[in-house]
Structure formats: structure tokens, C-alpha cells
Write a protein that binds this DNA or RNA. Sequence first.
DNA 1: AAATGTGATCTAGATCACATTT
DNA 2: AAATGTGATCTAGATCACATTT
Lengths: 235, 235
Amino acid sequence: MSETGTFHACLRCDLRKRSLFGVLCDNDCNRVDLQKSSLRYKPSEVIYDEGSRPKGVYCVSRGSIKILKTGTEGKEQILKVAKAGALLGYRNIITNEQHANSAIALEETELCFLPRALFVELMANNEDLRSGLMREVCQEYDELADTLTDIAQKPVRERTAATLLMLMDTYGLDSIENSPLDINVSREDMANMVGTATETLIRSLKELKKEGFIETKGRKIKVLNGRGLLGLVRS
Amino acid sequence: MSETGTFHACLRCDLRKRSLFGVLCDNDCNRVDLQKSSLRYKPSEVIYDEGSRPKGVYCVSRGSIKILKTGTEGKEQILKVAKAGALLGYRNIITNEQHANSAIALEETELCFLPRALFVELMANNEDLRSGLMREVCQEYDELADTLTDIAQKPVRERTAATLLMLMDTYGLDSIENSPLDINVSREDMANMVGTATETLIRSLKELKKEGFIETKGRKIKVLNGRGLLGLVRS
DNA sequence: AAATGTGATCTAGATCACATTT
DNA sequence: AAATGTGATCTAGATCACATTT
């Protein structure tokens, strides 16, 4: 992890409007600018670790991050993938507990770090921020409940299809048809998203490839028939 | 579902202090008393249904309720069991969506129903209520993430042990040692908590019984060695 | 009659041991 | 050297078909 050299003012951040910090007023933004640091992480660098005390919140400006729990024998269970615009690490500031999960960069990632005290102060003074966070956590709860039900009940093949669609969305591959050749996540990470063994994930991808839903070039995956994958997920 | 005959004033409800509504002032309580209805549900009666529009919130005063999603081919995935003191059904009022899960009584259950508009008004006027709810949702998110990781990674035997401990806690069977003969949930419901087939759950219980962790009498289960079960869960 | 339980059988997915590719 | 991929084998748990209990 290192400081990014350049300074990006909150007020001129075009991601802000699409994030939970969209509600900050000019004055709030200035306060954030004074206290934040802009950090850069390399792939697989740890942003925060399960069990540690939350030091602040992280506002993602570029890249992608896996949010995960470490389960049996160190196997990761990836709960979600955060991308630009996401706010991370605030949940256990609110519960006043240690981090219940870890955040690790999937690719080169930049984010702004806000110290805990500043975040607490912003929350205290901004009802819009509080209600935005509230809505966000509620939505994330429902998403997690969906994932849990899928893992408990759906076969690997369908969960693999769902994960591919999630990744397409995360990496912004335009429409559901005809995405560029760009899903570039390790097979192990993908297996930990699906909740299966790496070998099983690889076989599942091979099957989807044989059936023409996807194409692979090395580790890169191109989705050829997103609508078809969606059909598998819905079944 | 039927009205309970008797009227219980919020101010005199001794559960209130231990619930999210503990923060309501006398005036709030009076407003609630004017608009709430006290309802009684029989076992397996539906309190609200996945996909329906939230009509209000439910404050549980007696009994227990399963919160579940209906997955593949109608198989239930039980996300949690709510007991007296719990507040249900508010999450999708906040997200302004349809209910993302269903609530079904596990036994004879009583609760107070507050219409949506009243709940929204209480939230709007009471910062303590808002922050209590916020903390609650954050905690529930973390609990669900734990459950998800267990389902993805732990064998049925360990998840069965975890479910038994959860049920002991829910049904208030004093300490971890020597609980009375009182876990009385259908094998099917228990299987849907563990996330397995009913036959598999039954075999799993049989094994735990053979090993002396539990004792059964008909469908009732008595935990003989809670500490031992905890050991299984931790492994 | 519905829930619980059992036995027999099947299979999806895990695991292990390597080969191949990046 | 680490990630990807493959083949062989194993096994936990699902499924099916009933018997037994409440």
C-alpha cells in the first residue's frame, strides 16, 4: 500500500454523486479533504483484516476489492466484490466491534481513507448520510440472504452462472450481450465466490464453455450469452 | 390469525425495555397504543409473505417465528428464528421494496402490529430508534455472513450442532449445561435451518445422540452436553 | 394422515496426484 | 514458481421407497 501522489478533492470527484457520500455538503467535503489520505493497493494487498479494530472507512475510487470471511482451514468465502463508488469498513464502526470480514484488493486499487472519528462526526451531523447508510445495509442484508439461499440450494453450475453475471456487472462489461474479453479473476477467487473447490469451478466453466455460454483465453473469460446464463440462474 | 382479546399497554410491556422500542418515550408509546393491534397466530400461520408489500412492523411478545426464503422447488431456507422482543418486517419498509423473506409462526405466537405509516413517523421523530435499528441491521448482516460461510464450508454435523445451540438460546433453556426437555421444532424446519435434507438432519441427530451430546424423546430434543456441541462448532 | 425414521442406492462435488500453461 | 487444468477416486449428502410412530 502506498500514498497516491496526486490529490483529488471530494468536491470534484465524479464518483461522489453516485456514492453514499453524494449527500455531503461543500463544507463536509472540505473537512474530508483535510483529513483523508489517498491510498493505492496492489493486487492481493490487505485493506483491512477480520478481527482487527476498524480504523476508519474506505471510499473506493478505482479498482475492485473482495470482501471475505476466512472459514474452515483458511478457505476464503467471498461475500461480495466492491468496486468504485463503494464505501467499505463502516459496519463494525456502527456495531463497535472488530471487523467481521476482510477486504483484499483484487487488482490495482485506489481509495480514500477517512479516519474513524471523522466518519463518526459526519454521521452525527448528517441525517441524509445516516439514512443512506441505513438503506444500503438493508439492501446488502437482502442480497446476502439471496446468496445464502443459493449456496444452500442451487448446484455449482447455476451459482457459477450467477457469479459470472455478477462479475460482468462489477467490471462494467456493457450490455448483457457481447461483453469484451475482460473478466480477469483467478480461478481460486471465483471458486470462493461460488462457494466450491477450485477444481470444481474449473470444470463448471469448462462445461459452460462447451455449451457456448462463455469463451476463455487463458484465465480471461468472455461471456457470449449473458441471457442464457440468466436463464440458468432463474431455473 | 386472530385479535388477542386483552389489551397490553406499551408502557407496561416489560419486553419493551429489552427491544428496539425501549427508546420510545411515553408519548410515543401512547401513539402506538392508539394504532396498534394485538394479534395471535397459530403454528405455521403466515405473518407476512415474500413478495408482498410491507404493511407495517411486528413486535413479537410471545412465541417464535421462522424468517425464511423460499428457494428451489419451494424448499425453505430459514435465515433466523425470532422470539419475544424481536421487531420484524421493517427492513423492506426502509428499502421501499417488497418483503424479501417470509415470516411464519413456529408455535402459538402473539405480537403487536404497527401500521407502516406509524412506524415511519416514529422513525422520523426518534433518532434513538433510527440508530438502534441501524446497529441491529449491521449486527444481523454479520450474523448472516457467518451462517453463509458455515453453510458453504462446514459439514452437516457441525451445522446441526450450531443449530441446536441456536435453538437452546432461542428457547431460553437456562445454561449451556442441563437444559430441560424442550427443543420442539419439526425435523423439517430444523433441516431448513441447517440447510440440508430432512433425512440427513435426522441421521445427523441420531449420530449426536449416539455420541451422548443429546437425548431425544419423540420429536423433542434435550441437549446433554452443550459445551461439547460448542466444541464441534468451533472445530 | 402427517411426521419421523430407516435402508438402499445414486451422484454431485471434494480430494488427491499430477501434467500443462503462464 | 504459481496458476490452470485433467484424470482417477472417494464420500458426504441427496434421493427414493418404505416402515414406524405420533
